Computed example of a mutant assay.
Amino acid sequence: MKKDLDLGWFDLKKALQNTDRKELINIIRDLYRYSEENRRYLLARSINTNAEPGILEAYREVIKNEFFPEKWHGTLRYSVAKKAISDYSKASGDFAGTMELMLFYVENGVEFTCKYGDIDEEFYQEIYSAFEEFCTRLETPEGKTLYAGFRERLLKIRRKTKGMAWGFGDGIKLRVKEIEIFFEDAQSDS
């Protein structure tokens, strides 16, 4: 017999295929009860996120809590905030919601440095990298439809980052300008 650690997806799949519907629902219920992360994932995977905005809000809270927790100071674990974005995207398949979370992550990074002052180079690299990924996705055919809804927020980020250290403010300013030109050109081509 295989050790538990040697068992993989195919072993589990085989076992689940022999499980009746009621037992599968019980297994999912247990996973739901096991952790908050499981609850968020199962809800995002199973319920229309457009019809239930509370699902997206739960992921926003994870991100916000890394920057501005209700108690004490944030631990600012980039990996936790970025995992929330990735988990939402994988579970829901909601491109617009994923873009919302990506920009929300950047906005919280900007607010964090506005509130606490100059941070270190790693901080700015993490936030700028997320901003760059957001902008790259915004320039895709699917992202183009979202620009109008994000434009004011992008301009606000540009204003707030003016003069920020490590070239962060300059990088944001340049990238927002590139986005504006991209969408002006796209509009004139239409």
Rank of each mutant, 00 (worst) to 15 (best):
K2V: 10
K3A: 15
K3V: 13
D4E: 12
L5E: 15
D6R: 11
G8V: 00
F10R: 07
D11A: 00
D11C: 00
L12H: 08
A15T: 03
L16P: 07
R21A: 14
K22I: 13
E23H: 00
L24Q: 01
I25V: 02
N26I: 07
R29A: 12
L31V: 08
Y32T: 04
E36K: 08
E36Y: 08
R39S: 15
L42N: 11
A44F: 04
R45G: 05
S46T: 11
S46P: 09
I47A: 07
N48D: 15
N48R: 12
T49D: 06
A51L: 09
E52P: 06
P53H: 01
G54A: 01
G54P: 04
I55H: 03
L56Q: 02
E57W: 04
A58F: 07
R60K: 02
R60H: 00
E61W: 07
E61V: 07
N65I: 06
E66K: 10
E66I: 07
F68G: 05
K71F: 10
K71C: 01
H73E: 13
G74E: 13
L76M: 14
R77L: 12
S79L: 07
A81L: 09
K82L: 10
K82C: 03
I85D: 06
Y88N: 01
S89A: 02
K90Y: 05
K90N: 08
A91G: 03
S92Y: 12
F95R: 07
F95K: 06
G97K: 00
L101N: 05
F104C: 04
V106K: 00
G109R: 10
G109K: 12
V110I: 01
F112N: 12
T113G: 05
K115H: 06
Y116G: 06
